[in-house]
């Protein structure tokens, strides 16, 4: 199957940042080493400082300080976008995220718009080791007024950033590093087997289906960073066992809007939720908690959570492979659930 050359996710993201800074002079890009010629550790901020010198601030290594600084800007009506070089370091900025950005929206009696996006490159499978490979999404779940999003190869970043900055509530955008070099999907086509659409709206969850979106044996819910691995698994499951997976990729992780999910989710009665974070108190548990009351009585098997192992992420690639969720992990889980 011949495809025209589609945009890489990193290019789409970079283009979105250019568009945001161009459209609104109140939008800032703040972070460590974000200026040209370096353009950020993952080159996502490339070209911004040259075009918008007054809106791009390359900072010292001070995660707590720069997120606090962003809070001061947001309180002043500005719209800062902060890059945390590695999402693992968002731990250093936990106080300003928990006690300042999100609190300010609601704790002063009147709604205070806090238009801030904290960008966190996350995830492993690149051999970066225990403190540069984590998926800390779960640590930020359940904070009032804090919205969590995840980069996806289906959702256009310009629309996503427009939405995050317009919300008036701070957002954390998790960007699975593995996605940066992947290509965006376009024209409703994933590959020779799978198609996709947006059943609710283009900023709702992407629905990846085989044949008909209304018929599936198993529904797999996974954030954008897992798309490739889940698709690999779904492909094999179909070709080898004719198990049809419907894959739902929400762009907003939290609050998780279960009501926006397509009805097929109830029809399948078998649900697998996948995340790259380690086991225990994760996003999948939150999704399952939202789904159980809605689907109780219609489920044919317990909702199956797929996570990375409850272990430190090793640096050696072969060891890292064993700890993190891979296509095989998803394949095995779906096979098990399908047979239940």
């Amino acid at each position: 199957m011949v495809r025209s050359q589609r945009e890489r996710v990193s290019e789409n993201l970079n283009r979105a940042l250019h568009a945001m800074l161009e459209k609104d002079p109140r939008v800032w890009m703040i972070g460590e080493d974000v200026s040209d010629p370096y353009g950020g550790a993952f080159k996502i901020t490339k070209g911004l400082s040259g075009r918008f010198p007054d809106q791009v601030v390359s900072t010292p290594i001070s995660e707590a300080g720069i997120v606090g600084l962003a809070g001061g800007l947001a309180l002043s009506g500005e719209r800062p976008i902060v890059e945390i070089m590695f999402g693992d370091f968002v731990a250093l900025a936990f106080d300003p995220i928990l006690n300042l950005l999100s609190k300010s929206v609601g704790m002063y009696g009147r709604r205070v718009p806090m238009r801030t996006v904290v960008r966190c490159p996350v995830g492993g499978n690149r051999g970066y080791g225990p403190t540069h490979s984590q998926s800390p999404q779960k640590h930020l779940i359940g904070i009032p007024h804090l919205n969590l999003y995840e980069l996806s190869p289906f959702h256009d970043c310009s629309a996503l950033f427009g939405r995050m900055l317009a919300a008036g509530e701070p957002a954390v955008l998790f960007e699975n590093k593995i996605l940066y070099t992947e290509r965006m999907y376009a024209d409703s086509t994933v590959d020779d087997l799978f198609s996709y659409d947006f059943p609710a709206s283009s900023d709702g969850c992407a629905r990846v289906f085989l044949g008909s979106p209304d018929a599936a044996d198993v529904v797999v819910i996974a954030p954008g960073g897992l798309t490739g691995r889940v698709l690999d698994a779904a492909r094999r499951l179909f070709l080898e066992h004719e198990i049809v997976c419907l894959i739902l990729v929400p762009v907003q992780l939290y609050p998780f809007d279960a009501s926006s999910l397509p009805p097929a989710i109830a029809g399948a009665g078998r649900i697998v939720v996948v995340e790259e974070g380690t086991a225990g108190g994760g996003w999948g548990a939150e999704v399952a908690a939202c789904l159980y009351p809605r689907l109780w009585g219609r489920l044919r098997a317990p909702i199956r959570l797929v996570t990375s192992a409850d272990r430190v992420i090793p640096a050696a690639r072969h060891l890292e492979d064993e700890v993190l969720v891979q296509a095989d992990t998803v394949y095995d889980a779906v096979l098990e659930v399908a047979g239940a």
Binding site: M1, D192, L193, F238, L239, E240, H241, E242
Partner: peptide, 9 residues
């Protein structure tokens, strides 16, 4: 060409 056939098929 362009046709996908499952292993059971």
């Amino acid at each position: 060409a362009g046709v996908v056939i499952t292993e059971p098929a």
